[in-house]
Amino acid sequence: MPANTIKSIYTDGACTGNPGPGGWAVVVYFADGSVQELGGYEAQTTNNRMEMQAAIAALELLSTVPTNEPITLYTDSEYLIKGITQWVKGWKKKGWKTAQGKPVLNQDLWEILDERNKNVQWQYVRGHAGNVGNERCDKIARAFATGKTPTLQQPKSDSVLVTEVSDYVPQSTITYEKTTSSHLVLDMTMMESTAPNSVVTSEEIPRETRVALLRSLVETLRIADEIAAKGYLITSSELADLMDVHASAVTSRGDEWRWRNWIVSRVRREGNQILWELERADQVNSDDHTGDPATE
């Protein structure tokens, strides 16, 4: 097996505020035992977009490494897995509309992922379950999301040649150096987060992007309100999808806590699933609820 053969890739994304500052990470494992790590940030984004951004960076890297066998890409994002392996086909047939006829969120990134989805096998891995690759990705992504600059590992040799990274990869967090070939080798020495022009302000984000993020937030809040009003019970994974966080971030908060405008309460367990109920906080006596407010 050649030294530059990729064995597996892990990706992850994180966001503080959701929408808010976000980070993404890629960890690549090679046959010779080398590890290569990529990462970056955006000043205003969502967790889902960071999960997708990480996958885009991984696919961009894969496109530069000739291989005859599919490479396994591991992610803990069910949104990403289901979107790229199932939903995207239907969205394209409907002109990038959902089954309800609404515009597909994050269409710009889905189109890039769909175009570059070649020679890769998508594999879901449970987050925060002790998987080394997933845990490392999570640590890198969260560091970037909180304004830190993590130290990223470099491969043992310059066996990985990379052409120009996609415009969707934040350039301010990665530096490059020229080689004697026509390619670029990733230099994983990261720039300080306080360096000039390394932080993008919300004003620099295109207005249409900011509006799309706001619409996404409003739709999330509308769904939560409907769930609360109709008394629906939802599982931990469904609640995590609604909040755009890892499922472990839901179950670790206890039996009752506040998220935005709602009190979230654990109702019961059915088999392997925990069922939760949402109630509008303004309709509940706040003195009866002392759980920590959610910050997602």
Score class of each variant (00 low, 15 high):
M188G: 10
L239K: 02
K7N: 14
M243F: 08
T209Y: 10
A247T: 09
D167A: 14
S193A: 13
G33P: 02
T75S: 13
P150Y: 04
A14N: 03
D76S: 01
R253H: 07
I6Y: 00
M50I: 04
N119I: 08
P2C: 09
P70A: 07
L59C: 05
W24S: 02
T180N: 15
E164P: 08
E238L: 09
V185A: 14
I81Q: 05
T45E: 01
L73R: 00
A249Y: 07
K230D: 15
D167G: 13
W91N: 02
A14T: 00
V35A: 04
A54F: 02
E226W: 12
T151Q: 13
E204H: 13
N119A: 09
Y74M: 07
Y168I: 12
K93F: 09
P66A: 07
H183F: 14
V28C: 06
M190H: 13
L213K: 07
D225A: 10
E277V: 09
N261Y: 15
E277W: 07
A224C: 09
T151Y: 10
A294T: 05
N197A: 15
R266V: 11
Q100H: 13
W257D: 00
V28G: 00
K139I: 14
Q121S: 15
S63L: 08
E203G: 10
A294R: 03
E256G: 10
L242I: 05
P21C: 04
T72F: 06
V132E: 15
K148F: 08
E78M: 10
M188L: 13
W259S: 02
W24F: 08
A145G: 04
K178S: 13
W96C: 02
V200H: 07
G17P: 01
E204W: 11
G254M: 09
V162E: 07
S157E: 15
P293R: 03
I223P: 04
R268N: 10
D255I: 11
G101M: 08
T179N: 15
Q171G: 12
R280W: 15
I84D: 00
E135W: 07
H246R: 13
Y168P: 03
T189V: 14
V200Q: 09
L239P: 00
V200P: 03
V199L: 09
Q107R: 15
T220E: 11
T173F: 12
P2Q: 14
E164T: 12
A224Q: 00
Q86S: 12
N119K: 10
V132W: 09
R258Q: 14
K139V: 11
P70N: 05
R258G: 06
T173W: 14
S248E: 11
V165D: 05
E60D: 15
A58R: 02
A31N: 14
P19C: 04
T201R: 12
T11P: 00
P70Q: 04
D114Y: 08
T11D: 01
E192D: 11
V199C: 08
M52E: 00
L214D: 12
Y79G: 03
L73F: 02
G13Y: 01
V199Q: 08
P2L: 10
T151V: 14
E37F: 00
M50V: 03
Y176W: 14
T5R: 08
T16V: 11
T163N: 11
N197R: 13
